[in-house]
Simulated scan of single mutants.
Amino acid sequence: MTKKKKKTPMSLSSGRPPLVTKQKKSMTRTATKFLINKHHLLEKRKQQAIAKGDKAEEEKISAEIEALGGLEYYQQASLQGQRRDRGGDSSTVLMQWLYPRLAYPKTDTTEPEPLRMLEIGALSTENACSESGHFEIERIDLRSQEEGILQQDFMQRPLPTDSSEKFDILSLSLVLNFVPDAKLRGDMLRRTIEFLHQPGRYVSTPDRAHDFPSLFLVLPAPCVTNSRYLTEEHLVCIMSSLGYSQVASKTTKRLVYYLWKRDSRQQTGEQFTKKELRSGSSRNNFAIILK
């Protein structure tokens, strides 16, 4: 009997856990951190078992995940972690970067048109960007958490047919790390270009021209700071090959934040494979493959 060839996943649903539909009792900060970290570790081991074709190990790990409360409690922990009193709204960092150039003089009677934003992996309609008044936001996620968020897989979203369907900025906050395949992560980053306006759209408004069109990218810090296959320098090279230049970055213990601007350069077509950049048994295997 011939062994079936393993297929590369073509959607995000196999990687990112579904969202819960109801809020449960508030978790403590310690419980939230433990549950998220434990779930990430188990999901990593599960993906390794799937890659090896070890069905018994896959089922064993799935049982461990269920013993923790399953994906529903994982998602509840994620939502708790993003509460404002926990400092979890990543869009506050984006607004800190953008606000000085988005603000317009109170004496100016002509209010600029809102910038169009596509928020991929949206959990809430109430974040810093939503409340700033500077954006017209379209929100999508694999499982809609509330009204105002379209249930949609970004990798299956129809490509824009004209400028009216494109955006000034895309937000990928804690989304890329849930994509289960390194090549699919590269495909997702390349696909973001298709949804952004062409560079030069705001040539007559220098403040906006400085930052847009752009991509806001947030990852768990270890994906960049402790990976065998990805460093910040390597990520900059990958993004540069796609036609992005770095505008701003911030690293904390938990997260890394980046603002990338789409510039006038063409994609280089350079390939990035899974190549060890750091050695050590304590490293994780997060990678981005671009072909």
Rank of each mutant, 00 (worst) to 15 (best):
T2E: 12
T2F: 01
K3N: 06
K4A: 11
K7A: 13
M10W: 05
P18L: 01
L19S: 12
V20C: 04
V20T: 06
T21Y: 08
K24C: 13
R29K: 15
T30W: 02
T32W: 04
T32A: 07
I36S: 05
N37Y: 06
N37W: 03
H39N: 07
H39D: 12
L41S: 12
E43Q: 13
Q47K: 13
A49C: 10
A56I: 14
K60C: 13
I61G: 03
E66D: 15
E66R: 03
E66S: 09
A67M: 12
L71T: 12
L79W: 03
L79T: 10
Q82W: 00
R84T: 13
R84N: 09
D85E: 15
D85L: 07
D89W: 00
V93T: 11
M95R: 01
M95H: 06
T107I: 10
T109R: 01
T109D: 08
L118V: 13
L118M: 10
L118D: 10
A122L: 14
S124M: 03
E126Y: 04
E126V: 14
E131W: 00
I137D: 01
I140Q: 03
Q145W: 06
E146I: 04
Q151V: 10
M155C: 11
S163F: 04
K166Q: 08
K166L: 00
D168V: 01
N177G: 05
V179Q: 00
L184R: 00
M188N: 03
R190T: 15
L196H: 05
H197N: 14
G200P: 15
T205Q: 11
L215T: 11
L215C: 10
V218D: 01
P220E: 00
V224Y: 01
Y229V: 10
Y229D: 13
L230P: 07
V236W: 04
C237K: 07
S240L: 02
G243A: 06
S245T: 15
A248V: 12
A248E: 14
K250F: 10
K250H: 11
L255N: 04
K261H: 02
R262P: 09
Q266K: 05
T268A: 03
G269R: 03
K274N: 10
S281F: 10
N285Q: 11
A287E: 14
I289Q: 10
L290W: 01
